[in-house]
């Protein structure tokens, strides 16, 4: 079932997340990080950070903190088995740290199709700020949805 193009422009509910030190350490270990700046508070402070820094791609996952994080896709009739992450981009304004309360404001910016509808593309843009409004980063995700029926 094709995603209705009318979904473009939809604002998704904002997500507010407190960045926890333990969560950052767990992420660092899961991706094989060995740089003590991302694991050890004393090393982070020695490098000039107020607390453990949020590594460059961690922000992507914070948006998944909501209940039913892929509900915006399944609600549009998308089968998650047919979803691929096509592109991901980050533009950074400042490094966030453990202890920051971050607000993520996602919206579906664009929907288009290729190959006669066999592939649909959904572009999601998310602004990340601290609770005081200071900008942290802007994220752009391109999600590719395969339609196995129209590929035949």
């Amino acid at each position: 079932m094709p995603i209705p193009c009318s979904a473009a422009g939809t604002e998704l509910p904002p997500v507010t997340v407190d960045v926890e030190r333990g969560r950052l350490r767990f992420f660092a270990e899961a991706v094989g990080e060995t740089d003590p700046v991302y694991l050890d508070l004393a090393a982070a402070r020695a490098a000039g950070h107020p607390d453990l820094p949020v590594p460059p791609t961690f922000l992507f996952g914070l948006e998944l903190e909501r209940p039913d994080p892929f509900g915006y896709l399944t609600g549009l009739g998308v089968d998650l088995r047919h979803v691929l992450h096509g592109e991901q981009a980050f533009t950074y304004h400042s490094v966030a740290h453990a202890g920051d309360r971050l607000v993520l404001r996602p919206r579906i910016a664009e929907i288009y199709s290729k190959k006669g509808g066999a592939l649909q593309f959904l572009v999601k843009k998310t602004a990340v700020t601290r609770a005081d409004g200071s900008p942290v980063a802007d994220l752009t995700s391109v999600i590719v949805v395969r339609d196995p029926a129209s590929a035949r």
Partner: peptide, 11 residues
């Protein structure tokens, strides 16, 4: 890290 202005990939 603070010197990274942008970071993008295509999968």
């Amino acid at each position: 890290q603070e010197r990274i202005r942008s970071f993008r990939v295509r999968f």
